[in-house]
């Protein structure tokens, strides 16, 4: 029965992409609205789960429970402020600007170091022709992004800069198109398996 609901709703939504027929478009809109509402309710169920997991850590005083207590406090304060005054109010924006934003930016900054370390590890641990091509291209593109190669006027520099742009705009663009098409084919096939009820992640 659940498979029939998934297949039926999925087919009407999919048809709405390709057939301009009012009944199908209306049905698709209704199904999409219900799904957005259900996704929001599912988000709240996820938040409730987060709360219960950390609450049990605090109540049983497991290792690292003070961090769980901090998470619960931050979660409840932000949620209550957001629910009462709206997500655009001054306090919610302060929490967003002075806590969420700097931590996100800090994590992204950390990524620079770990990406560089991962590049060095690749060179030292996996020495095959593809890794070599990857590292050489990455170094060449990085050098071309920097000021020495990127802004100098000598003939050699201009040639290297043009070569760098050619690799990035032609070789990598063609490759990115192939990867995008491959990913879209894979995603489409996975979706079709659900629509044909071959995969049933919602249970039987």
């Amino acid at each position: 029965m659940w498979a029939a609901a998934a297949v039926g709703s999925g087919i009407f939504v999919l048809l709405g992409y390709f057939i301009d027929y009012e009944v199908i478009l209306t049905l698709r809109l209704i199904l999409m609205r219900w799904s957005v509402l259900l996704a929001a309710v599912a988000l709240f169920l996820g938040l409730f789960n987060l709360l219960t997991v950390h609450w049990s850590k605090v109540s049983e005083q497991e290792k690292g429970w003070p961090f769980s207590a901090l998470l619960i406090l931050a979660f409840l304060v932000t949620l209550i402020m957001g629910l009462v005054f709206g997500p655009d109010n001054q306090i919610s924006l302060l929490l967003f600007n002075y806590i969420q934003l700097p931590v996100e930016a800090g994590l992204m900054a950390l990524l620079a170091v770990f990406l560089a370390v991962a590049g060095f590890r690749l060179v030292s641990r996996r020495r095959d022709p593809f890794s070599l091509i990857f590292v050489v291209v990455a170094l060449f593109v990085l050098l071309g992004t920097g000021p020495t190669l990127g802004a100098s006027d000598g003939d050699g520099y201009v040639l290297l800069r043009q070569l760098r742009n050619w690799i990035a705009q032609v070789w990598a663009s063609g490759g990115a198109r192939g990867i995008l098409l491959g990913v879209a084919l894979g995603a489409g096939l996975t979706g079709l398996r659900v629509l044909l009820a071959v995969d049933r992640p919602y249970g039987d």
Binding site: S9, F18, S35, L180, A184, T190, G191, L192, Y202
Partner: peptide
Amino acid sequence: GLPLALLVGVGAAVVVGGAISGTLIPQ
């Protein structure tokens, strides 16, 4: 199970439709 099936069915259709009309055809 019913709302979950609805969510999964619509999600899968959006993924398939998005992959076809957003990537496969234009690329």
